[in-house]
């Protein structure tokens, strides 16, 4: 991937020398493993089944700045036997980059970039090991298609981490409508019998005949106090940790300039099951730099440690958000 921001050689060497110094210093005074301030809100898109907005590095006073990503999920019904549907549902992730985030990129370059992001996110999130159990509606008939759409509104570095955080928050927030199977059964009433004898000369040809098929044909949405139930296994959605590697040091949450100065990035995505130890869902090496194979193991265990920290912090925030929104909804209801 081409460097999205160009920096001069002297800026690059300034950043690199400062990283090599003891103790290392970054341009905004952070330590190597410090994140910028992360702002997160869930439930930002009223028409989506789940949504989240995340911003890394924005000053709360300021109108703009930072890496900002909007994520939203939308559920769609698919038919399995005649349509594209897969039994048990499927997930499709799409990442769009706003041209305003990359004003210097041509349209083609932007397409390539968002294709890169889309592939990475889709491959990780649609993995069978993460598949939620409640995306099916009727076995072998209907299922949910979960569309996860991300928009990169602005890029100030560390898009991968932000993308996975936004995706996790939106999927956490997603509510699947509760469905009830509906079965058509033939009326066995005596009044219809004479009509039957006259009309139905050839029984097997009727398309509306449902008497032969025992299982449910369709579903309806019962009234429910909430929008639905949460996605099954929502604790599992992975988080990505990007280690930016320059010679012997690695650091987290690079700004665009630091990304341009670091020759190699290692992105690792982890899922954190509550019962067992974290599992690696994906590893990507990005950039022209090289990495000794022996170092990979230590880097991965480091990334896992950072991922666990990130996971714990995000978990608290997501529960806070749930509480805040329930509280708000209750207040609004009380005011009525």
């Amino acid at each position: 991937m081409a460097n999205l921001t160009s920096i001069s050689k002297s800026e690059k060497s300034y950043i690199q020398t400062a990283l090599e110094a003891v103790p290392p210093l970054r341009e905004d005074g952070r330590a190597l493993y410090d994140f910028r301030a992360v702002l997160l809100a869930t439930g930002v898109a009223p028409l989506a089944n789940g949504s989240a907005r995340i911003n890394i590095g924005k000053n709360p006073e300021e109108g703009a700045g930072g890496t900002e990503i909007l994520a939203a999920t939308k559920l769609e019904v698919e038919t399995v036997d005649s349509g594209d549907g897969v039994d048990g549902g499927r997930i499709v992730c799409t990442v769009t980059c706003s041209p305003a985030a990359y004003p210097l990129l041509s349209m083609n370059a932007l397409d390539e970039l968002q294709y890169d992001y889309t592939t990475t996110l889709h491959q990780v999130l649609s993995h069978p090991s993460l598949h939620p159990r409640n995306l099916g509606i009727l076995p072998r008939k209907k299922s949910w298609l979960l569309n996860l759409d991300l928009v990169v509104l602005s890029d100030a570095g560390n898009v991968y981490d932000a993308m996975f955080m936004a995706a996790r928050a939106a999927l956490w927030d997603t509510k699947v409508p509760i469905t009830r199977a509906v079965q058509y059964t033939a009326k066995k009433s005596s009044s219809s019998k004479p009509v039957d004898e006259k009309m139905d000369t050839d029984e097997s040809s009727s398309g509306f005949d449902t008497r032969q098929i025992p299982s449910a044909q369709d579903f309806d949405l019962p009234d429910y106090w909430d929008e639905g139930e949460v996605l099954g296994g929502r604790e599992l959605w992975p988080l990505a940790v990007t280690l930016n590697i320059h010679s012997s040091v690695h650091f987290l949450d690079a700004t665009s300039k630091e990304e341009a100065a670091a020759p190699l990035k290692m992105m690792a995505a982890f899922a954190f099951p509550s019962t067992s130890s974290p599992t690696i869902q994906a590893v990507r090496l990005l950039g022209p730099g090289e990495l000794q194979h022996a170092r990979l193991q230590t880097l991965l265990s480091e990334a896992e440690r950072f991922g666990q920290e990130m996971y714990d912090a995000l978990e608290i925030k997501l529960r806070d958000e749930d509480f805040r929104r329930n509280h708000k909804a209750r207040n609004r209801f009380a005011q009525r």
């Binding site: 493993y33 994140f35 702002l39 709360p60 920290e309 912090a313 805040r324």
Partner: peptide, 9 residues
């Protein structure tokens, strides 16, 4: 170190 905050209201 990572901390999450809310967007300013």
């Amino acid at each position: 170190m990572i901390t999450f905050a809310s967007f300013p209201a």
